[in-house]
Amino acid sequence: MKYVNATAKLPASLLTEIQKYVQGETIYIPKQEQNQKKWGSDSGARKRLDERNANIKSQFQTGSTIDQLAADYYLSVETIKKIIYKK
């Protein structure tokens, strides 16, 4: 997250109003909910995890054991169980 000087982005009247509540402090202004992106959507990490999890489920259905999958994917047995049994 980068910091931007409020004087560069906000009109003077709004800046004056904000200064009634906060002066010289850093505040975080979140994005509006409809503009927020889900985790991993930009980097593709979510897609890769979804593909990995689909592969794990498929391999389990074709006979791989939970212990084998945990070793193959370097995950704990409990994590493999969560992936397999998640609806």
Rank of each mutant, 00 (worst) to 15 (best):
K37P: 02
Q61Y: 03
Q32I: 01
Q36G: 00
T62C: 11
L49T: 11
K57G: 06
K37S: 09
L69I: 11
Y28R: 14
Q32R: 06
S43V: 00
S41I: 09
I27F: 06
G24P: 06
F60P: 02
D67M: 10
D42F: 12
K38V: 08
S64Y: 08
T62E: 15
D42A: 08
T26H: 10
Q23F: 02
I27N: 06
D50F: 04
T26K: 15
T65D: 07
W39L: 09
Q23R: 15
A54Q: 13
Y28N: 13
Q68L: 10
Y28C: 15
P30M: 04
S64Q: 05
N35C: 03
K57A: 04
N55T: 09
N35Q: 12
G24Y: 08
S64C: 10
Q68G: 07
Q32W: 04
K38S: 08
Q36S: 00
K37I: 08
Q36R: 14
R46L: 13
E25R: 14
Q34A: 12
K57C: 11
Q34Y: 11
I56N: 07
G44K: 03
P30C: 12
R48C: 01
G63P: 07
L49I: 07
K37A: 02
G63D: 08
Q68E: 07
P30T: 09
R52E: 04
Q36C: 11
G24F: 04
F60Y: 14
I29T: 05
I56G: 04
Q32V: 04
R46F: 12
G24Q: 01
D42M: 02
Q32H: 09
Q36E: 14
E33W: 06
K37Q: 14
S58Y: 05
A54T: 02
Y28V: 14
R52C: 08
D50C: 01
K38A: 13
K37V: 10
E51R: 15
I66T: 10
S64T: 03
K47I: 00
R46C: 03
E33F: 12
N55M: 08
F60A: 10
N53S: 11
